[in-house]
């Protein structure tokens, strides 16, 4: 399980996967995200928490440039992935998103078979040279998403026929199959029942061994359960960032404390 011997001070520069400096986001005239600075570590689960509309999802969507698809959004500042500015003019967002995968709030399987859903990413990015390799990727990803045993006999059935929790794990498998380095999850459990939520949380804990996972969540309990680092956002500001245990037990900022104790949000 989690390597508890590693402490905050022991994190070396190499472990930083994503570093954001002075990130500002505007939706038209609205200043949605103000001056965010944060370093996100590799092979760690980082949780973004905060009341709705605080900018946590906005920031998440900046990390793989999904905000590009919204006409009125503009992003300023600098986000580096492995030291490379992802908003550099030379960066192709398509290539970036292959490295930084995303799982969305609502399960959104494509109206294709389970197999084709998972194989979609490897196909467009050319990760397999033949059918056997593709089969291998699909199986590995479905196992990785703890779904293989449930679906291995019906890979040709449509992904939309699965239950909500299965659909979300399928979406995770789909993202994992693309072999990303970072996995972004935008409230992945908000549409799921408690049992499915438990399965997905367990999965997130396993995914940490391969990826840097960033999860946006509404639920403080969930953040406490799955994450090692937590960032608290409020009204577009990154208020506090630190080890999850510290944030929940001895918050530095009065706003963080108010949120955690249930007075705002």
């Amino acid at each position: 399980m989690y390597d508890t011997t590693r402490t905050e001070s022991a994190v070396s520069q190499q472990d930083i996967k994503i570093s954001a400096r002075n990130v500002q986001v505007y939706y038209g005239d609205k200043h949605a995200l103000k001056d965010v600075n944060v370093d996100i570590q590799d092979k760690t689960v980082t949780a973004f928490i905060g009341p709705s509309g605080c900018g946590k999802s906005t920031f998440l969507r900046c990390i793989n440039r999904m905000n590009d698809t919204i006409d009125i959004a503009s992003v300023k500042g600098e986000i580096r992935l492995d030291g490379e500015d992802i908003y550099d003019r030379r960066v192709d967002p398509v290539q970036l998103r292959a490295k930084v995968g995303m799982v969305f709030q609502k399960p959104n399987p494509f109206p294709k078979s389970i197999y084709d859903n998972v194989a979609y990413g490897p196909r467009i990015h050319g990760l397999s040279r033949n059918k056997a390799e593709l089969d291998e990727i699909v199986e590995k990803s479905l196992r990785g998403a703890a779904l293989w045993n449930e679906v291995k006999d019906r890979l040709a059935e449509p992904g939309t026929g699965l239950s909500g929790g299965q659909q979300q794990r399928l979406c995770i498998a789909r993202a994992v199959a693309t072999a990303p380095e970072v996995l972004l999850m935008d409230e992945p459990c908000s549409a799921l029942d408690p049992i499915a939520t438990g399965q997905v949380e367990e999965l997130i804990d396993q995914l940490r061994e391969q990826f840097s996972v960033v999860i946006v969540t509404h639920s403080m309990q969930q953040a406490a359960r799955v994450s090692q680092k937590t960032a608290f956002f409020h009204l577009g500001n990154l208020v506090e960032y630190g080890a999850t245990d510290d944030i929940f037990t001895k918050p530095q900022d009065s706003r963080t404390e108010a949120y955690i104790s249930g007075r705002i949000g």
Binding site: L81, E84, I86, D88, R90, V91, D92, Q95, L96, A98, K99, P122, H125, L127, S128, R129, A132, E133, L134, E136, I137, E139, K140, S141, R143, G144, A146, L147, W148, N149, A177, A179, Q206, E209, Q210
Partner: peptide, 22 residues
């Protein structure tokens, strides 16, 4: 059986390249 397979096979592996060059 649902544990992740070890990352051994070549399938699914990606060559690491800079983002700055397509």
């Amino acid at each position: 059986t649902d544990m992740p397979l070890p990352q051994t096979g070549r399938a699914g592996a990606r060559t690491k390249g800079s983002l700055l060059q397509a």
